[in-house]
Design a protein around this nucleic acid. Structure first.
Lengths: 350, 350
DNA sequence: CTGAAAGCGCTTACAG
DNA sequence: CTGAAAGCGCTTACAG
């Protein structure tokens, strides 16, 4: 029965049409579910499609129809769990809408980002979800993408562009974290990690300042410590918190990676994170819940953000003329074993 | 100077040719770097390409040339750090070779895998890297992919297919883990977690048995505990290790997620992981190094595996007639704070 | 209800 | 060194 031919070249519409004694046009109508085709003809065509193992060539169809079913996702690096979860959410949502995700990683390099965007643009994406590498030049990115492809910028502001933007509520998150420490009696609170010139770091510092101001506290210069947002750098910078007395008794960290690094750095200096010094993170990466002590942090639900990003770009594809959207995603405090992490230091309350 | 026109429709080869007073053929030769074109003509064309902001339509070129520059990557889920790192490695390597990664997630569902493969096949991938969902039917997958697209199967065997296969050395890894426990004095060692019918679980159990056999030990039925490879399930199954005396004093776990779950389950039962009961994992996910106590485990370097997978599929694309390759990737023991994790239980050595 | 024809954006022998 | 022509696999008015 099944005389499926040895796989000689691709099976095309023309092959099916020939086998059924029909024109390519009619077979195409069957494929696209047109109601014009006689039901008996449709059945005949469908049987033949199956028999020959026909695979639709969406690229050819898209070329003719001048549409695209791909969406490019450009992120720093999947080995960062925040972006991995984000990508999972994007892909999940795009797939249900019939789009395919074209992946590109920049590793925070502006040059790689340039190369990746060029390559992805040649694959004619319907839209782009872009989490800009640090130090991206908006005008340059804009020139490269051109004016015809909608872009959703995620996570980091991109100057000189008028694209949709999805941001975390960084300011509010840092405010929540700082208030949490204030409520537990801390008065000398540092903001630890991140690069001052990144927009997310600026916003988090802003929220931190606001919460301190509410409590009538002015941060001292020593409380603001910069470092790359990695565990290693954070561990190495730990000492900067203790160069002068009185030292801070707690730190709001730029993100969880920094918080975990700081915890390691504290241990290396003979201090007990949560015991002698309170630490709070940002992101709620999976490690936060298994660290020792477990880490109180600001949960941002990256997977939900991914779904949201996919939804926003799809909406833009449907309605290109809508005004630019600036969406701020909610964040929440995720307290963990606070008795361990957030004990105010004994005999201090100045 | 720069009278770049308002973005009206896509700029094509024909536009450039017209502006330069040349044929499309000549412009195409410039694009493809042909040495046939006069250098002055080339310069003129290149200036015009830049001026009009031309973007190469690779899809159209690929259609004409009957080639493809996409590789599909089908994995369970990016929120699993093992797969996220793997995907990062794949994407990194493919990008350097000029390929784009088409992403698909199955969430371990055979139905989703079917849908994802259908969608990806329509995008005409040059090849597929497939980490099969648990319970995949090889014949069914094979029927869907057809005989024209090379596939590299990763991580889990797929029966009834003759595709290239990249596997972790599961047997050896479990052997290393078990020997490590034996060397530290344990005699009653469990194998905890995983589904008996998954190939990776079978292989890990096999290595475990072999190491025990080397020590003249026959595992008791109670030492083999099945559970889904998640933290939650593992925590819930912890009790199964202690239903009868004498209970095991250590466990080789199916993977790190299970090991972390078991550690939580031990704590919930008033036991100290590493103190009263030794635990060893498999994978070396990032949490392993920050868990408390830190987790000794088998490192598999998923990012390197991703690069390896990309390399293997590209090799297959270059040389389709090569005999089927079955590649086993190395694994190694990653010992951590072994004094905490691997103390043999006091007063026991039967 | 079905077919002939044109065309999406590109490439590739083949002439000249 | 450059151009005319055909064609990749599909879709879409337009006839009939």
């Amino acid at each position: 029965m099944n005389d499926a031919p040895a796989p000689r070249g691709r099976v095309t519409l023309a092959d099916i049409a020939r086998a059924c004694g029909l024109s390519r046009a009619t077979v195409s109508l069957v494929l696209r579910g047109s109601p014009l085709v006689h039901s008996e003809t449709r059945a005949r065509v469908e049987a033949e499609l199956k028999r020959q193992g026909y695979v639709y060539h969406r690229g050819a169809a898209n070329l003719r129809r001048k549409v695209s079913t791909g969406v490019a996702l450009v992120i720093n690096d999947l080995s960062n769990p925040f972006f991995a979860e984000f990508a999972a959410g994007v892909d999940e949502w795009l797939a249900t809408a019939g789009f395919v995700t074209l992946l590109g990683s920049t590793n925070e390099s502006v040059e790689r980002q340039q190369a990746v965007l060029t390559s992805l643009m040649e694959h004619d994406p319907a839209g782009i979800i872009l989490s800009p590498a640090e130090g991206s030049d908006g005008a340059r990115v804009r020139a490269q993408v051109g004016g015809r492809t909608p872009v959703l910028v995620f996570n980091r502001e991109l100057d000189a562009t008028d694209w949709d933007f999805l941001a975390l509520d960084n300011t509010h998150g840092a405010r929540l974290a700082t208030r949490h420490l204030l409520e537990r009696g801390h008065r000398r609170i540092a903001f630890f990690g991140g690069h001052r010139d990144s927009s997310s770091c600026r916003q988090r510092r802003q929220g931190y300042r606001e919460a301190l101001a509410e409590a009538g506290i002015e941060p001292e210069p020593q409380w603001l410590v910069e470092c790359a947002p990695t565990r290693l750098e954070a561990a190495q910078q730990t000492g900067a918190l203790f160069v002068r007395d009185p030292a801070p008794t707690a730190a709001v960290c730029y993100n969880d990676a920094v918080a975990l690094g700081l915890m390691a750095g504290l241990v290396a200096r003979g201090r007990r994170p949560g015991g002698d010094f309170a630490v709070i993170g940002f992101d709620d990466i999976p490690e936060a819940s298994v660290a020792s002590p477990t880490l109180t942090t600001i949960a941002v639900d990256p997977r939900a953000r991914g779904r949201q990003a996919a939804e926003l770009i799809l909406k833009r594809l449907r309605e290109p003329e809508l005004p630019r959207a600036h969406t701020v995603a909610p964040v929440r405090l995720q307290a963990r074993s606070s008795s361990e992490v957030l004990v105010p230091p004994s005999g201090e309350s100045a």
